[in-house]
């Protein structure tokens, strides 16, 4: 197992002055790792960053998600697609313990996260954005990212109140670091504005910056391109690949924009009525009859 070597390539802590280097990741074919899961070839010999085994949740008799089996490679960009109400957001809520699974197991980097809370899961390595943006609207853009850096800063309440040197040092470094995250998303010029006053597309980008600031090994993006215009979407697409290449993390995204999904995702999982109906590379998915049927008569079918 060479998992350790990859972990070292993860973004260094906030104490490192420089951002990690951008090293292009090549696009790999998928290889089977278990009877039901595939990983990009380069990640296949390492523990998947995420593994879901028989994951499911029932809401008052409705099986919103059932029998969800998926593995995601450590540097994979994966897509989760499906019609509205298929259960995609519910899966994100299960992975982050906003909802408690009714059955099944979630392994993060091989470790069961059943006993963890939402906050602990973030500290263990999963960060996310929300379909209906959840920023701290009345706080500045910079403060939003600083809140994302919360656990990257280490000073106690005493240092904070007495403004000890540790406070000043950590705050200065965190601010620099936050500005770097903001400039990744061209938001550095808006640092002092209120998050709620940003245009919609910029709010989505800020939410990604805030999630990234928590130094995750798996980033979950819930419809990141929703409400963006085509040029913003194109830039987002580039950014998502750049994030993966820079930070060497895995990204799982829910998206309705098929061109985005087909262009940047290596593995795609298709969900319908809470169940997986197809899994594979973009070309597998495009050719899959079950997928075409699920999308039949929908806008998606044309672009698929």
């Amino acid at each position: 197992m060479t998992a350790g070597s990859l972990k070292n390539q993860n973004p260094p802590g906030i104490w490192d002055a420089k951002m990690p280097q951008d090293v292009r990741v090549r696009r790999d074919p998928l290889v089977p790792v278990t009877r039901t899961s595939f990983l990009p070839e380069r990640d296949a010999d390492k523990t998947p960053i995420l593994e879901c085994i028989d994951l499911g949740i029932t809401f008052g008799g409705l099986k919103a998600v059932d029998n969800f089996n998926v593995a995601i490679g450590r540097t994979e960009i994966a897509g989760l697609i499906g019609p509205n109400g298929a259960g995609k957001t519910t899966i994100f809520n299960l992975l982050t313990k906003v909802y408690q699974p009714t059955h099944g197991t979630i392994l993060l980097d091989g470790k069961d996260i059943a006993a963890m809370s939402t906050a602990q899961i973030n500290r263990a390595g999963i960060a996310r954005t929300f379909q209906n943006i959840r920023l701290f609207h009345n706080q500045t853009v910079l403060d939003n990212v600083l809140i994302g850096l919360h656990n990257e800063m280490e000073y106690g309440m005493g240092s904070a109140i007495l403004r000890l040197p540790g406070y000043w040092k950590a705050e200065r470094i965190a601010r620099e670091r936050a500005m770097e995250y903001l400039s990744l998303f061209h938001l550095e010029g808006h640092a002092e504005e209120l998050a709620g006053s940003l245009p919609y597309g910029a709010q989505r980008r800020l939410e990604i910056a805030r999630a990234l600031a928590t130094n995750p090994s798996l980033l979950l993006l819930d419809e990141p391109a929703a409400g963006m215009n085509p040029s913003e979407t194109a830039e987002l697409m580039e950014n998502i690949e750049k994030i993966r290449d820079t930070f060497h993390i895995a990204i799982l995204l829910i998206e309705h924009d098929m061109s985005l999904v087909m262009n940047i995702c290596e593995g795609i999982v298709v969900l319908n009525f809470g169940r997986i109906i197809a899994k594979g590379t973009p070309s597998d998915i495009r050719a899959n009859p079950a997928v075409i049927e699920a999308y039949l008569g929908r806008k998606g079918a044309k672009t698929l």
Partner: peptide, 19 residues
């Protein structure tokens, strides 16, 4: 303090960033 205000403004988002 930022964590306290984050909890006030959006509890779920605050939890999602590890607070």
């Amino acid at each position: 303090g930022r964590a306290i205000m984050a909890v006030r403004d959006n509890r779920i988002a605050a939890e999602s960033v590890g607070i």
